[in-house]
Design a binder for these strands. Structure first.
Lengths: 223, 223
DNA sequence: CGCCCTATTGATCAGCCTCAATGAGAGTGG
DNA sequence: CCACTCTCATTGAGGCTGATCAATAGGGCG
């Protein structure tokens, strides 16, 4: 459910859109400042597959999972979006993915048209964003198609640490989320986690807090 | 190895690029007509991972595989590109994928800068192309992460028939290619093929020529 | 403290992989 | 025209990784 306080603010967008479109090249950071903020609870839907895709989102705080599901419930998480990441640019007129907040999350909502028409060469331009997403998708296809459970989990942990620039990892997502991201089951994720801890490569401070003790070895594992 | 006859023609590009850039919106089909044609033999490399990505390619005839490999040789084919498809827009300054001709192939070479600067809203615009690629990547992640061998092969055959708009399928790629695309082994692909034939869902005219006898059932299989 | 949800661990199973042998088809040359 | 070869596809037997089913443990919260 959407936070009511922000619902009316949603209609500030059209003006912002016009302004950003008019300025174009003169205003490299138009997108950074445009849009309105929305607040989402844990597991709250941001958009669903098939819905018209009017907006693009930028994570201010918290994290988001985008995913696809089969009719029998099998789920594949395509990506976790962390603070600073942009998502929602999937499909053409309608969303091709679903998106949910992993934990409490604040998003900046940007009109799709504003985002697509932005011609600045900044890191947020539509083409640059899509190129990066496609590149990550390629890596993930290699992981899903050709890597072992151990390699997948090592790659996931290393990637997460790199993206959060942090020492100790504080995972916002459950084991089920990780499993659905890595194409494994919750049990295999759990077992592999204990296995990596047993080998001294990681420390399981708690099930959500993890320290990478041997980054070199983890790097070697995922090739 | 590249066909020598076309090598000199390669240097016609700069002029074409300038012309296309100057025309911009006035010339919606600039990309369709710009660029030079190149001919590739079976298994010939078009570009390699890490190489600077100066060009984007459009398949005129034949087909192309783009892929990533692990250091121990495990390969994941990201996509097969058939006549009309555009590829080469992976990575930023350098290619993040490798590309090879599956069989004898003719490509139209387009300057990357020309392609990226094209502001026409045609189906070939950079954003539209990338959106479509990302969308297909999402589908493929679901397939690789969550579907069975039988579902994967059914999806592959249906997708191939739809893309070639044909009745009888004439596969340009080997079983090994299909396996590396679907995240399986050559043996599993072969066995699953015979299994589908045994169930009367397909006809294996030869190992490269396949008739889909029951599209509805195949559709049901891959959900 | 007890409840609920999630994570871990154990035992067994199955789907796909690996290794190995056979078969089919295309191209070559006697 | 038919052996011969080479490559690729198919088929078989057995093994292994990860899935499934089931029980236990931990952790947050009223």
């Amino acid at each position: 459910m959407q936070s009511v306080a922000f619902k009316s603010a949603h209609f500030e967008l059209p003006q912002a859109a016009l302004a950003a479109t008019a300025l174009l090249e003169d205003h490299p950071a138009a997108i950074e400042t445009s849009g309105v903020r929305m607040h989402y609870e844990r597991d709250e839907e941001i958009f669903g597959e098939g819905e018209p895709s009017r907006n693009v989102y930028r994570v201010v705080s918290g994290s988001v999972r985008t995913y696809r599901v089969l009719s029998d419930g099998r789920r594949q998480i395509v990506e976790f979006h962390l603070a600073g990441d942009v998502f929602g640019l999937d499909g053409d007129l309608n969303h091709h993915l679903s998106a949910e907040a992993v934990g409490e999350t604040v998003l900046q909502v940007i009109r799709r048209s504003v985002f697509l028409n932005d011609r600045t060469e900044g890191s947020l331009s539509a083409v640059a964003t899509l190129l990066k997403k496609f590149q990550r998708a390629q890596d993930h296809m290699l992981l899903l198609g050709r890597q072992t459970a151990c390699e997948r989990l090592s790659a996931f942990l290393l990637d997460f640490q790199r993206r959060t620039k942090g020492g100790e990892i504080d995972l916002p997502m459950s084991r089920q989320d990780i499993a659905d991201y890595l194409g494994l089951t919750i049990e295999t994720v759990s077992r592999t986690m204990t296995q990596l801890a047993g080998a001294g490569l990681i420390d399981l401070v708690s099930c959500r807090r993890i320290v990478l003790r041997n980054v070199v070895a983890l790097d070697r594992i995922c090739q």
